Each structure stands twice: as structure tokens, then as C-alpha cells.
Simulated scan of single mutants.
Amino acid sequence: MDFTYDEEQVALREAVRGLLGRAYGDFENRRRAVAGDPGYDATTWGRMAEMGLLALPFAEDDGGVGAGPIEVGVVAEEIGRVLAPEPYLAAVVLAGGLVAAVGSDEQRAEIIGGLASGELVPALAHAEPAARWTDEATAVTAQQSGDAWTLSGVKEPVPFGASADLLLVTAALPGGGTGVFVVDPSADGVTRDGYRTPDGGRAARVRLEGATGTPLGEAGVDRTAAVAAAHDATRVAAAQQAVGAMQVALETTAGYLKSREQFGVPLKTFQALTFRAADMYVALELARSLALWATMVHADPDATAEEKADAARRAWAQTSGAGRHLGQEAIQLHGGIAMTAEYSTGTYTAHLTALDHLLGDARHHLGLLALDVAGHGEVDPLR
């Protein structure tokens, strides 16, 4: 299997790296961007729109570029390298992907068009308190009266939910299943309480009390499968983003071992520390391979929904475990300085942990994969 990018994809990577490098190559710029609301730099978000990055995964008829998961992965990896705080995963891949999948022609034109231009930032309000990485909605319910729908319940955490221009809210339908509704965050019955996440990002608690919602696409249809597909696509892109973050964490750690001295010699002189750095490299490359493979599965038009879900779980399980390993080792090998707010290593580790909390950790996805072990044929270990 060829994991090499073609010329256009390499050009895309260099262009994104240049844009984000200018914005956040100095880590102090990121620290300033996340210090105030909305938690990212609106100017950089606008430049990403001008470059066409926000329109990448969407059909040209909907105002997009018509690219695919591989190009999205290229962007995501560069975002991870500098921990760019812009809501690319949350708005473009997750919320935008769900709109592209089930929205009506009018909704796709309005929402995706606004997102692609950088004028509208949607957020998916799906996670619920006490729920654990499920694709169904239970705590928030939808009630129908004629053609009108009202929603009640609490969603948390909602990535970038406090500053989003539009909320896509999942809710339990009266007849069973999960519906998706477009909600105006400024409408009556909607309360948003925003807060910072450990990596400097933003999330919110959204309370709905009889808030009016417009069905996304056809009314009353169970959208659980579409929500699951959007989560899987986000996991694959997040795996690429995590790979970018882990690459920099490894480079920073290796540089520290080469430059920091103890007992009059560089730390790299100590074999035990060198072996630990080598283990970090192996974990990173395994995660990179699984992330690229899963991206190619999602880019395959002949791949089934089950195959895409399986690839996303495998890739994220590997990436999640690698992220925890690299993050912990990077902090340990740096010593106490890595725990300070002024140093970037702790923030990279916090971001990898935040992705786990958003998309499910390795244990969760390994458990799901284990449910299907009996469905695979026996393998003779001697052949």
C-alpha cells in the first residue's frame, strides 16, 4: 500500500504549513490566541477560508472544493504540529460532515456555504452528561406539535459551543431513534455556559428548555448511523492531527536530550533515556501508519460503512495509546520544566488527552473491536 502523497497533496501540505507556521510557529502566539474568547484567531480562520481549507471535504455543488479524507488529513496533521486552536475538527469535519450527509439542498447551501467562506461556525451538540461516547441521544428529547419541534435537556461538552453561530443538536425522537436539529443559539430556551478545556480550547454546557429546532434533512428520520459516520470521519482526521502533535513532542524531546547536560555530558549519553526515546519513535510510526491506512479506507468509494467504522476504531485505538505514551514520556524526559505553563510539552500532552475525551480512549475502542473478534476466521500462528 502506497502512503506517499502526490504532488498536489504535498503542495497543500506546504501551503498549510506555511500559513499555520506564520500564525503559531511561535508558541507564544498560540498562548495569546487561546487566552481570550472565542479561543482562536479569527484572522487565521479567515485565511484558512480564503485558502479553501474550510471547503475541502464538501461537494462543489454545496460550495465546497470536492476533496476527500486524504486532503483533510493533510490539513489536520499540520494543525496538530502547531496545535492551531481553530475549530477545524469540530466545525468542518464533525458538524460540517453531518450537514453534508443528511442536510437538505437548502440547508447544505446555507450552512456549508457559510462555513466554507468562514462566515459561519457550526457546532455539533451531541455528548450528554453521564453518557459515554455513544452515537445515540437519550437525555435530550424532541417533541413534535404539528410541523414544529421543541427540544429539552442538556448537552455537554459541546466543542466551541459557546461561540458557535449555529448548533446542530441531536435528540431522542418520540418514535425512537436519534434526530438532528438545527438550533439558533440566540433563540429563547437556549442557555450556553462556556469554559476552557485543559489544552486551552473551548467547550460549553448547553441547556435546552423547549427550544425550537428545525430538523436537519427529512423530519422524524433516525440519524444514528449518520452521527456514527461523522464521528468515525472525525476520529480518522483527529488521528492525523494527533500524529502531527506527537511528531513535534518527539522532536522537542529529542532536542532536549541532545542539549541538556547532566554530570557534564548530554542526556542522550545515557542509554536508558535513548531507549525510551526510541520507543516513542516506534509508537509514533505505528500510529502514523494506522492513521494513513484508515484515511485511505475512508477515501475508498467502495468501502462499506462497517469497514470505515472498523478502520476508524483501529486507527484511533492505536493513536490514543500512542498519544498517552508519548505525552507521558515527553514530560518525564523533560523533567519538571514540562509541567510548567510556559513550556509547550505539557500543552501538547493536554491536547492529546482532550482528543481522547472527545472521541473515546483506546480502552473504549478496543472494547468495541473485541466484540467482533468471533466474526474473524481462525489464524494459524505457525503459517
Rank of each mutant, 00 (worst) to 15 (best):
W316D: 04
G177Q: 00
P85N: 04
L368I: 10
H376T: 11
L284Y: 14
S117E: 07
H351D: 14
A33P: 03
S163E: 03
F181N: 00
L359N: 07
L19A: 11
D6A: 10
E8T: 14
L151W: 09
T197L: 10
Q328Y: 10
A299K: 07
E329F: 05
A90E: 15
D61S: 13
G335K: 12
Q9I: 12
D165M: 00
A84L: 03
L12A: 05
A11V: 11
L20G: 05
H364P: 09
V99Y: 01
L124D: 01
A239Y: 06
A162Q: 04
L382F: 09
S320P: 05
M48I: 12
A42W: 02
W316C: 13
E78D: 12
S163C: 02
A84C: 13
Q332W: 12
L358P: 11
G39F: 05
D302G: 13
V158K: 00
A172W: 03
H364E: 11
L173I: 05
S104K: 06
Y40A: 00
P174E: 02
R13Y: 08
W45E: 01
R47W: 15
E378M: 10
D222V: 05
T170V: 06
G179P: 02
A242E: 09
A187F: 05
K258R: 15
I111F: 01
R30I: 07
A277L: 15
G176V: 05
G194F: 02
G189C: 08
P38S: 07
D302T: 15
I111D: 00
P38T: 08
Q143A: 13
G113P: 01
A312I: 08
T197N: 00
V206W: 00
V93W: 04
D62N: 07
A131P: 02
R22V: 14
D188E: 12
E306L: 13
P159T: 13
D184C: 06
